[in-house]
Design a protein around this nucleic acid. Structure first.
Length: 568
RNA sequence: GCCCCCGUAGCUCAGCGGCUAGAGCGACUGCCUUCUAAGCAGUAUGUCGCAGGUUCGAAUCCUGCCGGGGGUGCCA
């Protein structure tokens, strides 16, 4: 249980007791919230409950003819009735009407031993209770290399997946391949023309084709595998062939690019397969039977307005040209996710330019009989890349693109992930690549990694001196720097829980930085290893603390997919 | 026009109802015979875009305005 929840329970019990004993009048209590105050002199955890209930208290007292109480008096009445708990230390009531609670320092110190014993399990929560969750992310069109914007999607999606799989969910990472439709057609034709050009055929790529040099690379690879064999084919035969060969090349490349960011997918899902295995037909029939489809202007429309009372807008299901629109694919796809594959929960990670599309998803889910709350769509803003202050366009159609691969090669997967995850999803990321590289050594990610390397170094040295981690007397951990370090570790489950609830991982790198800073202060203030035999017990206790720190740092770094080095 | 996001220290950004607004970078001053100085200690810096409102309490919620970005039915 999260510490704020535990303490909220204690406060609630105390308040009920105060009511039963007649200190306070009886009335319905609001939900008790306990928060982490900003300043240490305001306790480790704090609640403003007296301020929230003061009106109800005094109204009830007035009816009985009693004089009004101050929030501080109410706070004291509650604080007096607090039940005992090993984690609970002192409780004090502060000025306007806060109850500020301290953790019991002996209990805090003992957590060092618990963490060292249990490892990362100490921090894990069973939020999912085994629920199956799918995280679908990146899913960029398979028409070329990933540009740097996709790196943000990759970092967010993968970290959301890691957060879930460490905290009680069964997770599947999926990449949705848009392997049908106009973009794929143009991609296939461009590839075919490039292939022909390699063999000296005087043809041009389509006017709206893909001009990037990478298309020539793909053509070369087809040439390497098949020589001139395709030249004998007609356009009608060659283009589908090139589509298939090209998609194979691109998806392999996508997987390779993403692997360089430590992102690995469990499943690559083909949009086309929805049309080949009958899912689309089945969903169409289903909607038709529900009278959710109608014809207008030569197109077939889905009656979305029926399911979204606030909207009178319907969606094109099948376009006038007979081709299903993307919304149709999305319906079939989500039918597949929820009904055919039975995920309890699905997370689609999309960029903000899909905001309207995201807003329309609940309509289809309701039509399919699926609770819309089972689908979550975190939206993140775009990444603007600059080089020497000049914006570098990431556009896929411009020919000159900055790829994910290039940037990762330049700044490294660790720095890239840490940086991309440090911003809230809604914030646009705008950074200068030259600056990022120039500041390489000053990058916060290295500060965190350095802290981990120092921790590892101490433990290595201790092992070399024959010291073994054993049952230490953690009561010896009483230095402010030691307790501050433990306090920070104890906050981690709250950070994780919040990140999952909001589908927003950005607090994790910030937390990692804070933890690293507090460790480094401890490192500076408290010598761990000592030659003096008289210090043996303290050394043991501190080694336990260092081991706990290693566990905690490594776990957070694992969650954000950043390496935890043993040395630097 | 309408909808969504952003506007917090010189820069990049956290904080999004709680009691004295933070971090990193940058600036300035000290600190390496001791477990990694990719470090530590200290100093300086903010009308939290503007104006109202709600609340015991607002950077945080509501309304309007200003500035930036995105979206707006047969592309995805």
């Amino acid at each position: 249980m999260l510490l704020p929840h535990l303490f909220a329970d204690l406060i609630q019990q105390a308040t009920r007791t105060a009511q039963k004993k007649g200190d306070l009048p009886t009335f319905a209590l609001p939900e008790v919230t306990v928060t982490r105050p900003r300043h240490t002199d305001q306790g480790d955890l704090s609640t403003a409950l007296p301020l929230q209930i003061i009106r109800a208290v005094n109204e009830a007292r007035k009816e009985k003819g009693d004089s009004p109480l101050s929030p501080v008096q109410v706070g004291e009445m509650i604080a007096r009735r607090l039940p005992g708990h090993p984690a609970l230390g002192r409780a004090e009531v502060a000025k306007p009407g806060f109850i500020n609670l301290r953790l019991h320092s002996g209990w805090v110190a003992a957590q060092a031993g618990a963490i060292a014993r249990q490892g990362a399990d100490y921090f894990r929560l069973d939020l999912g209770r085994g629920q199956r969750v799918q995280v679908e992310f990146v899913s960029a069109n398979p028409t070329g290399p990933l540009h740097f914007g996709s790196a943000r999607n990759a970092a967010i999606g993968d970290t959301l997946a890691r957060l879930h799989e460490h905290n009680g969910f069964q997770v599947q990472r999926e990449y949705y391949i848009n392997d049908r439709g106009a973009q794929t057609d143009i991609f296939a034709e461009t590839l075919w023309r490039r292939y022909q050009q390699l063999h000296g055929v005087a043809v041009e790529i389509p006017a709206d084709g893909y001009p990037g040099a990478y298309m020539i690379d793909y053509a070369r690879r087809i040439q390497a595998d098949h020589g001139a064999a395709l030249l004998a084919l007609s356009d009608a035969e060659a283009i589908p062939r090139c589509r298939s060969l090209g998609l194979g090349l691109v998806t392999a490349e996508l997987a390779d690019d993403l692997a360089r960011m430590r992102v690995f997918f469990d499943h690559w899902f083909s949009e086309q397969s929805l049309y080949e295995d009958g899912t689309f037909d089945h969903v169409s029939a289903l909607l038709r039977d529900q009278e959710d489809l109608y014809v207008k202007d030569g197109a077939v429309w889905f009656r979305a307005s029926k399911y979204l009372p606030k909207s009178d807008r319907d969606e094109v299901f099948i376009r006038a040209n007979g081709e299903p629109g993307y919304y149709a694919s999305d319906i079939a796809y989500h039918y597949n996710k929820f009904i055919l594959r039975g995920f309890d929960r699905v997370i689609d990670v999309w960029a903000v330019d899909h905001q309207n599309q995201a807003a329309r998803m609940p309509a289809m889910l309701k039509a399919l009989g699926i609770d819309p709350d089972r689908l979550a769509i975190p939206l993140y803003d775009l990444v603007t890349l600059r080089r020497g202050g000049v914006e570098v366009r990431l556009s896929k159609r411009s020919g000159d693109i900055i790829t994910l691969r290039e940037v990762v090669a330049e700044v490294g997967a660790d720095a890239a992930r840490f940086l991309l995850l440090s911003h809230s999803n809604e914030a646009r990321i705008d950074f200068d690549l030259d600056l990022a590289v120039a500041q390489n050594a000053e990058n916060p990610v290295y500060y965190v990694q350095y802290a981990h390397a120092r921790v590892a170094s101490i433990l290595r040295k201790a092992a070399a001196e024959g010291l073994e981690l054993s049952d230490a007397d953690t009561d010896l951990l009483a230095h402010p720097a030691e307790l501050a370090l433990l306090q920070k570790m104890l906050e981690l489950p709250e950070v994780v829980s919040e990140a999952i609830a909001r589908l927003a991982p950005h607090a994790l790198p910030h937390y990692a930085l804070e933890l690293a800073r507090i460790f480094t202060k401890f490192y500076d203030a408290c010598r761990v290893l000592s030659d003096d035999p008289a210090d043996q017990a303290l050394t043991q206790a501190r080694l336990t603390l260092v081991q706990a720190t290693k566990t905690c740092l490594a776990y957070v770094l694992d969650l954000i997919g950043v390496d935890a080095p043993q040395s630097m």
